[in-house]
């Protein structure tokens, strides 16, 4: 019975606080990462040679280096050049830049899957390059990239636990603090694992809904 009281009085409030921080980390990172990813992905396909090189380099770098190393660089490295970030903003910066690199890859793939004829047709109808992208190519490409980008958002939910390593106390951080106080590692981390499972399941359900809501009749990806 003692344990039950402990869970009610200590574990639930702490984990709730951690969960709120986790969600505050995940939501802005996911949105900014996706937007930046769309921009970078578009630049990689339609940008000038210089911009293409630049964005390709960005993607290679951020996909090739572990997220943890990136976070440590932002948090411990940037102060050396006079930029001081709080653990929270360093985490959001790290998550955004890293997931944007992955998003851009899905967006690039989707852009390349749009037939060239459509772009030529748009140009022959007098669309400028920017208008062609905005009205013809991107609306289709984003729908095609959505399954991949959804995966990336789910990865982001799980990787948000790494913020704990740069002392941003979110769900995992709260759990670690609780567990080292009470030595109830097994129980507390099982609960936390379950919370992440629920978060991931909710997110994938929502993304599925979104995908279905955006379907253009006649343009379904998978014919069933």
């Amino acid at each position: 019975m003692n344990e039950w009281i402990y869970i009610q009085n200590a574990v639930v409030p702490a984990l709730w606080k951690g969960l709120v921080v986790s969600i505050e980390l995940i939501v802005p990172s996911a949105i900014m990462g996706l937007l930046l990813g769309i921009v970078v992905g578009t630049l990689r396909v339609y940008g000038s040679v210089f911009l293409r090189l630049l964005s390709d380099g960005y993607v290679v770098l951020f996909r090739g280096v572990p997220l943890l190393v990136q976070l440590f660089t932002w948090y411990f490295g940037l102060p050396h050049i006079g930029i001081f970030l709080s653990p929270f903003s360093a985490s959001v910066l790290g998550f955004t830049l890293c997931s944007a690199a992955y998003h851009s890859e899905y967006v690039r793939g989707a852009l390349l899957s749009i037939k060239r004829g459509q772009i030529m047709a748009a140009q022959s109808l007098g669309f400028s390059t920017l208008d062609t992208l905005r009205y013809i190519v991107l609306p289709q490409a984003i729908r095609r990239a959505l399954p991949g980008c959804g995966n990336e958002i789910i990865y982001l939910i799980k990787y948000s636990s790494l913020a704990y390593m740069i002392t941003c106390i979110e769900l995992t951080g709260q759990a670690k603090a609780l567990a080292s106080q009470s030595f109830k590692y097994l129980e507390i981390f099982l609960i936390v694992g379950f919370i992440y499972l629920v978060l991931v399941s909710i997110a994938s359900w929502l993304l599925n809904k979104l995908e279905n809501a955006l379907v253009i009749p006649g343009f379904e990806l998978y014919k069933s």
Binding site: I157, S161, Y164, T172, Y185, L186, F189, L190, Y196, L197
Partner: peptide, 23 residues
């Protein structure tokens, strides 16, 4: 598959290192 794909690596590491295996 759902279990191991849905829980962050860091949480699983703690769960096994401090939880399951000592148990």
């Amino acid at each position: 598959v759902w279990f191991f794909r849905g829980i962050p690596l860091l949480v699983l590491l703690f769960l096994f290192y401090f939880g399951f295996l000592p148990l």
